[in-house]
């Protein structure tokens, strides 16, 4: 079991090495990158915006409902919303959701290419299939921090709207909370995590799709396995980065 896991990890890093080998012609690669930006980033904006807005709202409401002691200032609603959204919800929670959305799309599209011999066709033609298929995804996901930036903004906006229009706090108090004890490094920490998660989101599902064996049923199984492993690695990397970056 352990040997199998180690062998898979080794195979994953060898895959990464091959991704950056023998680059595809730039005129072709440019088109592939734009296509991946459209498929992976632009197509994810709707669901990210929807989830962020409403979860931000829920965080604000739940914080407000738990502030039963009148001595605790109302601006804590804005403060808690900001901290939850920026530190965890936007970078980590959204990345887990993207492991399902983007990850299953990546695994199933590459897996289907494997099953239907399209990857063999690329290799026989002399194309480095890993560079052709995975590299544009990695480059496209360099824009992933922008998605998370939007998630942060909409999460806090959702919190403000739920807090103010739900009658839990005033706009002034909420904004005061957002500004209270603001540590700019928390934004940097969130984006460092996001970049790592983007790399994970692009490569682990690709690995599971590229090396899958079997037919259509196995494509489905590979997508599920890819989602599980992408989520597990995101959670582990999140823990390690938090330990490294936020503790003294």
């Amino acid at each position: 079991m352990l040997v199998r896991y180690l062998s898979q990890i080794g195979k994953y890093f060898l895959m990464l090495k091959e991704v950056f080998n023998k680059p595809t012609k730039w005129s072709v690669m440019r088109g592939l990158i734009f296509k991946e930006i459209d498929d992976l980033v632009i197509d994810s904006l709707g669901i990210v915006a929807f989830i962020s807005f409403f979860v931000g709202g829920v965080v604000a409401i739940q914080t407000a409902l738990n502030l039963t002691n009148p001595l605790i200032p109302k601006y804590l609603i804005g403060f808690a919303t900001r901290q939850s959204v920026i530190l965890e919800f936007a970078p980590t929670f959204i990345s887990i959701i993207m492991a399902g959305k983007m990850g299953s799309f990546i695994t199933s599209s590459i897996g289907t290419m494997r099953v239907t011999e399209q990857i063999d066709a690329l290799e026989v033609m002399g194309v480095n299939s890993l560079n052709y298929l995975v590299f544009p995804k990695i480059i496209a996901l360099l824009l992933y921090p922008f998605v998370i930036g939007i998630a942060m903004f909409l999460g806090i906006l959702g919190g403000w709207m739920a807090g103010v229009y739900g009658g839990f706090t005033s706009s002034v108090e909420f904004i005061q909370g957002i500004q209270t004890e603001f540590i700019p490094f928390h934004i940097a920490y969130a984006f460092i995590k996001t970049i790592m998660f983007a790399l994970i989101l692009a490569t682990i599902p690709s690995f599971h799709g590229y090396y899958m064996k079997g037919g259509a049923l196995e494509v489905g199984k590979a997508s599920t396995v890819a989602f599980v492993w992408t989520s597990v690695i995101i959670i582990l990397v999140n823990y390690i980065l938090t330990q490294l970056l936020l503790t003294n």
């Binding site: 012609k25 072709v28 289907t112 290419m113 239907t116 011999e117 063999d120 066709a121 033609m125 002399g126």
Partner: peptide
């Protein structure tokens, strides 16, 4: 690049049109 291959299941690229599939080796 001197080899042409016709696969059992054709192995055409789903995301491309017929014209793009045929022109792919030239483009590459």
């Amino acid at each position: 690049t001197e080899i042409g291959m016709v696969f059992q299941g054709s192995a055409l690229f789903d995301s491309m049109t017929v014209e793009e599939n045929v022109g792919f080796p030239l483009k590459m």
